[in-house]
Amino acid sequence: MKKTIVMSAFLALFIFSCASTSSTTVAVGEAKTKVLKKLGNPVRTLNNNQNGEILVYADQIFDRENSDGSKIAGPNYWRYNYVYISKEGKVTSTRQEKQNYPPQAIDSQKMQGMNLLTAK
């Protein structure tokens, strides 16, 4: 009986520790260190001019509903979570979006030109 309870507790802990970054939220005003503890290391960090930095988190999502029933992965997209950090090390805002390009293709210079780096 004790072995079953211990194994169940261990399994539950393992499942919750593997949670996706998109399901975890951070609050405005939280310290950067707390964000890193919650979400882990970002896939990219962008310089946000004089405003601080942007931590970029990304999850690749495979859409199985639109697949043709084969074993090959269906269409996919990337779910991004941008966390804006001030110079003081506090969260100023967050933004989520879906895109078709991988995190390596994020061009901070192009985003800066389109005024996408600074949160509204």
Rank of each mutant, 00 (worst) to 15 (best):
Q50R: 12
A19V: 11
L11D: 02
G74D: 06
D107Y: 05
Q60I: 13
W78C: 00
T25E: 10
R44F: 07
I106F: 09
E97H: 05
A31Q: 15
I72R: 11
Y57R: 06
V91W: 08
F14C: 14
N48T: 07
T24L: 14
G29K: 07
N100E: 12
P103N: 03
P42R: 02
K34A: 03
Q109K: 14
S70Q: 01
M1G: 14
L36R: 13
K87Y: 02
L36T: 11
K38M: 00
S22T: 07
F14E: 00
F16G: 06
I61F: 03
S17N: 00
I61Y: 05
Y57V: 03
K71W: 13
A105R: 05
K38E: 03
L11W: 01
A105E: 02
Y84E: 11
F62K: 04
M1V: 08
K87W: 01
F16A: 13
G52F: 09
K3I: 13
I54R: 07
E53A: 14
I106H: 04
K110V: 05
M111H: 05
N66K: 06
I61W: 07
V28T: 06
T4S: 06
K98Y: 03
A119P: 14
T24D: 11
I54V: 14
K90I: 09
A31Y: 12
S108V: 02
Q109L: 11
S22L: 15
N76P: 01
K110F: 08
D63K: 15
N100H: 12
D63W: 13
